[in-house]
Simulated scan of single mutants.
Amino acid sequence: MSTTGDVFVTLTLARGPSLTEQAAAHIRGRIVHGTLQCGEPLSELALAQELGVSKTPVREALLELKRQGLVEIHPQRGTFVFEMSSAQVVQLAEMRSILELAALRLAMDRNGQALSLRWAELVAAMDVAMANENTEDYRVLDGVFHQVMFDLAENQFLSETFTVIAFRIQALRNRLSLDPALNEKSHGEHKRLVALAAGGEAEKVAELLAWHIEWTRSSYIDLLGLPAGDSRSTRGGERRLKAGK
């Protein structure tokens, strides 16, 4: 703060992203979009060289990503992209259902018309992505479709809680979207959600959303090659996905 006579002027200094924030965003993007596979080892040195920075911001970035559930750090073993067993996928879906259904009810109660309009816009954009076979755009729009509920729920703490699992959900969603048939099914359900929301049928929207989350849970486990109750990680199944098997 500076002063001129009796006039006080507050100076706000703009700050760009730090090297740690930039490194975290880069690595997070590669994990979420599937460039880095589940269980893949991460080298601080290799990442630092790739980004043109020292190892310190990379190390700090990996600690942040650990807090977000995207990497696992094992002493004496190293750092790895996160892995999930089928039991953990089930638990993630349970938490997702609790949070998304709560967000949906608040959003419809407080901003029902805005939710309906925003969803309709997103589904229209999804139509274009599907017609152009643009999987990358579709999966981004899919994530935004679900995030909108939290934006319009107007509950800071609900949104912050969802952030804890949001990146892992998007990472799994991106792997699921490798199958065009599953994208078609997912898109059809989004359209039904829009139609029900436009009619103000809150309970039917909630029922369909709950079913949609349950279906994606089963699809994650099936595609990752993990029968229910299996404690194995996602890594083997993801390799089969990338190999087209």
Score class of each variant (00 low, 15 high):
His26Gln: 15
Arg28Met: 13
Arg28Pro: 08
Gly29Gln: 14
Ile31Trp: 00
Ile31Gly: 01
Ile31Lys: 00
His33Trp: 15
His33Gln: 14
Gly34Val: 04
Gly34Lys: 01
Thr35His: 14
Leu36Met: 14
Leu36Cys: 07
Leu36Ser: 07
Gln37Lys: 12
Gln37Asn: 14
Gln37Asp: 15
Cys38Met: 15
Glu40Asn: 10
Glu40His: 05
Pro41Arg: 01
Pro41Ala: 08
Pro41Tyr: 00
Leu42Trp: 03
Leu42Gln: 02
Ser43Trp: 05
Leu45Ala: 15
Gln49Ala: 11
Glu50Gly: 06
Val53His: 09
Ser54Pro: 04
Lys55Pro: 07
Thr56Ala: 15
Pro57Ser: 06
Leu62Lys: 07
Leu63Ile: 13
Leu65Met: 03
Arg67Lys: 14
Arg67Trp: 05
Gln68Glu: 15
Gly69Glu: 10
Leu70Tyr: 01
Val71Leu: 04
Glu72Leu: 08
Glu72Lys: 04
Ile73Phe: 02
Gln76Val: 05
Arg77Asp: 02
Arg77Leu: 06
Gly78Ala: 02
Gly78Thr: 05
Gly78Ile: 00
Thr79Pro: 02
Phe80Lys: 01
Val81Arg: 00
Val81Ile: 01
Val81Asp: 00
Phe82Pro: 00
Phe82Asp: 00
Glu83Gln: 08
Ser85Gln: 06
Ser86Pro: 04
Ala87Asp: 10
Gln88Lys: 10
Val89Ala: 05
Val89Tyr: 00
Val90Trp: 13
Gln91Tyr: 09
Leu92Gln: 12
Ala93Leu: 03
Ala93Lys: 01
Met95Ser: 09
Met95Glu: 11
Met95Leu: 11
Arg96Phe: 02
Ser97Gln: 12
Ser97Leu: 06
Ile98Asp: 12
Ile98Glu: 12
Leu99Tyr: 03
Glu100Ser: 12
Leu101His: 06
Ala102Asn: 12
Ala102Lys: 13
Ala102Glu: 12
Ala103Asn: 06
Ala103Pro: 04
Leu104Met: 10
Met108Phe: 07
Asp109Gly: 11
Arg110Asn: 12
Asn111Cys: 14
Gly112Met: 00
Gly112Gln: 02
Leu115Ser: 11
Ser116Gly: 11
Leu117Met: 13
Leu117Glu: 12
Leu117Phe: 11
Arg118Pro: 05
Arg118Glu: 14
Ala120Ser: 13
Leu122Tyr: 04
Leu122Asp: 05
Ala124Ile: 08
Ala124Phe: 04
Met126Asn: 03
Val128Met: 12
Ala129Glu: 00
Ala129Met: 03
Ala129Thr: 01
Ala131His: 10
Glu133Ile: 11
Glu136Ile: 10
Glu136Pro: 02
Arg139Thr: 14
